[in-house]
């Protein structure tokens, strides 16, 4: 499903009624099945942008259209994965993965089958009856990914989902995410502040500037997958993006 952002702006009202422009006139089209990374420094409003697409926040002006219909609130076609710990600690892995389906009123037997499939897809066979506190950080995020995929959304919104993981786990999770994405062909919008992560994952990188967030540039990453971080092409694109961000910071 395509995601269209049309002149999306967001203003927050801070203390003393001061108006704070967080996002300024964002327009973009994300194609069906595309992997888009939104890259930007902290405070550039990238999380806000993702939250608005997910229906948790509302644009002050402009419009977000998914598959032809505007987003007005949380929408079953979109699932969001948060950076922070979002699993329900009183639920087992199985019950966490099945949460979305349960909320939609799917009967238990039917749910069981889907839940097992996605637990398998994220490589957590045998952990179905474990509780989140028994799992490592990487495994927890896999549960969150499985929970999102189980509801079969067309668009996956990911807000720095691997930000809290150590470097090795993070690299492994990126590979697994690509594997899952290639299998399921979801549209993915992935927020990160890591250039390396963006170049490794994305078809396209949308670079946002800091306060207010504006689209500063869009990069196509046309390296075939699997990508090799040590390759020359990878290094070239990463350097280009880094230089671009540097120039951006100096010009502000």
């Amino acid at each position: 499903m395509t995601v269209v952002l049309r002149n999306v702006s967001k203003t927050f009202t801070a203390r003393q009624n001061e108006q704070l422009l967080a996002l300024d006139n964002i327009s973009a089209t994300v194609a069906k099945g595309e992997f888009l990374c939104i890259l930007g420094p902290s405070g550039c409003g990238k999380t806000t942008l993702l939250r608005m697409i997910g229906g948790l926040d509302h644009p002050t002006s402009g419009e977000i259209v998914v598959g032809g219909t505007p987003v007005t609130g949380p929408d079953p076609r979109l699932a969001m994965i948060f950076q922070e710990y979002s699993l329900y600690p009183w639920r087992t892995v199985r019950a966490n993965v099945g949460f979305g389906l349960q909320m939609r009123g799917m009967p238990d037997e039917e749910r069981e089958e889907i839940v097992n499939r996605f637990i398998g897809l994220v490589g957590l066979e045998g952990f179905g009856d474990s509780y989140p506190y028994e799992l490592s950080g990487g495994m927890r995020q896999r549960v969150a990914v499985a929970r999102a995929l189980a509801t079969d959304p067309a668009v996956l919104l990911m807000d720095e989902p691997f930000g809290a993981l150590d470097a090795r786990t993070r690299n492994r999770m990126q590979k697994e995410l690509l594997f899952i994405w290639e299998k399921t062909k979801k549209t993915v919008m992935f927020v990160t502040h890591s250039v390396d992560e963006a170049v490794f994952l994305a078809d396209r990188i949308m670079v946002l500037s800091a306060r207010p967030g504006r689209i500063a540039g869009i990069y196509d990453v046309d390296i075939p997958r699997p990508r090799d971080r040590t390759s020359v092409e990878f290094a070239t694109i990463r350097r280009n993006v880094l230089e671009f961000i540097d120039r951006l910071e100096h010009s502000q």
């Binding site: 948060f82 922070e84 979002s86 939609r104």
Partner: peptide, 12 residues
């Protein structure tokens, strides 16, 4: 808050 927002995402 994230637990409540997650629930909202899944339509609870």
């Amino acid at each position: 808050r994230t637990w409540i927002e997650t629930a909202a995402i899944y339509g609870a």
